[in-house]
């Protein structure tokens, strides 16, 4: 993401460690079935997301808007159609129960934390640093790492290309007709130029890389050395502390009289 931002401590954390920590939190969040804990857990993630990415608050707010939609839509189907006994509202096939309501909200919060954690990572990590770190700390083979870096470099080029292809097809009248038929046609006709161009480009880049003596099985030196620092401790420390507090608070001062949201 290419918005203007200030680099701060979250940007300096070792990318592999950041990825592993966030992955662990993802799995951990799935094991939270306690509604009150889910609320305080969400708070602990949002504090970091809102205040510590170094991006202007205006952007953070803009990012939060679609999250609201995610929260609502994830919660809605469980609230409306989930199993439960204590009926709150019933109309036709809609059946809202107290259990399904809490479960729905719980799911909404869960989706929200996943979205925030993912964006937290994406906003504070440079792809090149991430893949250098994966090669150095997690022994990812260079042929995968450099392929990823080469492909990521192509993302803006491909997005622009997709737009141009759409325009070019419009001129030829592909999308002027309305209806299902032309929609299907464009689903099939859009990817062909994009994919064939991408395959050729990727192939050429791979040949160019090998012409520059790239060989995945050889030893190599690294232009960037990605290491660890005390910020890594701070990062892990923040989560240990804030999640413990979140748990204690939720157990001792529950907001709602429910515990496990599962049926």
């Amino acid at each position: 993401m290419n918005t203007a931002f200030k680099e701060n401590w979250l940007h300096k954390i070792n990318p592999s460690l950041k990825l592993l920590t966030i992955s662990f939190l993802f799995v951990f969040a799935i094991t939270i079935h306690h509604f009150n804990f889910m609320i305080t857990f969400t708070l602990s993630v949002s504090i970091l997301f809102i205040f510590c990415t170094g991006h202007p608050y205006k952007h953070i707010l803009l990012f939060l808007l679609p999250f609201l939609l995610i929260f609502l839509s994830t919660a809605a189907s469980m609230i409306l159609f989930g199993k439960g006994e204590t009926t709150l509202y019933k109309w036709g096939i809609l059946h809202i129960t107290e259990e399904s309501l809490y479960r729905g909200l719980h799911l909404g919060l869960r989706a929200l934390t996943f979205a925030m954690m993912g964006l937290l990572f994406a906003l504070t990590t440079k792809p090149v640093q991430l893949f250098y770190s994966l090669m150095q700390q997690l022994k990812l083979q260079p042929k995968y790492a450099y392929s990823f870096m080469a492909a990521i470099r192509l993302i803006p080029i491909m997005i622009e290309e997709l737009q141009t292809i759409r325009d070019a097809h419009k001129v030829r009248g592909v999308q002027t007709q309305k209806g299902m038929n032309s929609l299907l046609k464009s689903i099939k006709s859009l990817p062909i130029p994009l994919l064939s161009q991408s395959i050729r480009r990727a192939f050429r880049i791979a040949v160019a890389m090998e012409s520059k003596r790239f060989n995945s099985s050889n030893e190599r030196t690294f232009y960037y050395q990605v290491g660890f620092s005390h910020y890594d401790l701070l990062f892990i420390g923040y989560f240990i502390l804030s999640i413990s507090l979140a748990y204690l608070f939720a157990i001792n001062f529950p907001f709602f009289p429910v515990s496990d949201v599962r049926y």
Partner: peptide, 17 residues
């Protein structure tokens, strides 16, 4: 014919090899 996003990184890629 480039695999890296920045000028220095691209030449560094060859030097690394």
């Amino acid at each position: 014919q480039f695999c890296m996003p920045f000028v220095d990184e691209e030449i560094a890629f060859v030097l690394e090899n």
